[in-house]
């Protein structure tokens, strides 16, 4: 990449433009996505000007929009839906759970459904309890539905193309804070950390390290939206506590990237899974189960889950900060794990 890497939302915007250019049967639907507004987070900027017939700004009808998109997919087209705030995917849950994902297999033979539902997610922006959640845990374990999360390491052009090529509906979690950050570039994160990929595919998990090989004290597994906080924690742990960590950021969250995570976990004394979801039935619990089944007896301690508190996400900045996972939450968790302390319940 030449010069300074682009911001993540620009990369996503380019990905949407390229996808529409590459596939004349791809539609993009969502609320307020047309120009000049270009979507609440500007991910669709310029898209309706370039593709006036296939970018459809819709009424405020999440269930209806996802249904329409599923109808397009059913008929052989492809569709990307932007849910303005991922929290509102709750309104579209029936179409995702009972129609789009089911249609891949419930009619007795495989039927491809090219459908991506984009969910701007996460807190730290003061939007309050119904506009700050990360709903990924609610989409885990639905047959025929894959779950991906945007990351600064994964080019959205490749990830979007991959999801559209899968032939089954995908939910794409996009951390709202990440939109404003820059994509990683040239294999280097900063003065301490480099990054690479655990495999050759476009959506292979990224890993961030001081040294790519050899053993580390702790492996941190985190989705893309948590990468920045995880890196800040890793820096602190290394410089202040001389604790070495490696970070793995999967693009695909479900199904779990079992092989890559197992390989990475074999080179760490401790494993933490970090996510922004609030407590209970988390993605991390699913990842931990996969690792426990295969590595029980080799792990020094159970996989530690780091997630936001069991709470609504408050609006006021000081209250929100207390609830959501911060870099220092991760530092504390890793230190506690290394000290052999159990997880706080």
């Amino acid at each position: 990449m030449n010069g300074r890497p682009v911001r993540v939302v620009e990369n996503l915007n380019h990905a949407l433009h390229e996808s529409m250019l590459a596939d004349s049967r791809l539609y993009v639907l969502g609320e307020d996505i047309a120009d000049p507004y270009g979507g609440a987070f500007k991910a669709t900027r310029g898209l309706s000007q370039a593709n006036p017939d296939r970018v459809i700004t819709t009424p405020i009808s999440e269930n209806g929009i996802v249904g329409v998109a599923a109808g397009l997919a059913m008929a052989g087209d492809a569709a990307i839906v932007e849910i303005m705030f991922g929290d509102f995917a709750g309104l579209a849950f029936d179409q995702l759970l009972n129609f789009a994902s089911k249609s891949v297999s419930m009619y007795g033979r495989p039927h491809p459904m090219r459908l991506v539902v984009r969910c701007p997610s996460g807190g730290s922006r003061g939007y309050g309890p119904t506009h700050s959640q990360t709903l990924l845990k609610h989409f885990i374990g639905i047959p025929g539905l894959s779950l991906f999360e945007m990351s600064p390491f994964h080019d959205n052009r490749a990830v979007l193309a991959h999801m559209l090529g899968l032939g089954e509906p995908c939910v794409f979690i996009e951390d709202k804070v990440l939109y404003t950050r820059r994509m990683a570039g040239d294999g280097q994160v900063d003065d301490l950390f480099d990054y690479g990929f655990l495999g050759a595919g476009d959506t292979a998990p990224a890993h961030v390290y001081t040294e790519a090989h050899g053993d580390v004290d702790c492996l941190i597994i985190a989705p893309g939206g948590m990468a920045e906080r995880a890196l800040a924690a890793m820096r602190d742990l290394l410089l202040r506590h001389e604790i070495s960590c490696r970070l793995v950021v999967p693009s695909r969250l479900y199904p779990v990237e079992t092989d890559a995570l197992l390989d990475a976990a074999r080179h760490a004394a401790h494993v933490c899974v970090v996510e922004e979801s609030t407590a209970g039935g988390t993605w991390g619990a699913e990842v931990a189960h996969v690792l426990h089944e295969r590595l029980w007896g080799r792990l020094r301690r159970p996989v530690r889950l780091v997630h936001s508190a069991d709470s609504v996400i408050p609006t006021a900045v000081h209250l929100e900060r207390e609830i959501l996972v911060q870099a220092d939450t991760i530092v504390e968790a890793v230190l506690a794990d290394l000290r052999g302390e159990g997880s706080p319940v």
């Binding site: 017939d53 009808s61 269930n63 209806g64 929009i65 996802v66 249904g67 329409v68 998109a69 599923a70 109808g71 397009l72 997919a73 059913m74 008929a75 052989g76 087209d77 569709a79 029936d94 179409q95 009972n98 129609f99 089911k102 249609s103 419930m106 009619y107 007795g108 039927h111």
Partner: peptide, 29 residues
Amino acid sequence: HIFRDRYLSTGVQGESLPVAAGVALHLKR
């Protein structure tokens, strides 16, 4: 839950309307 050629049934009330609207959009285009 039957699907054959261009015939499709679903078991959840009202669910088919938005889907049919999407298919109608496809047909119109």
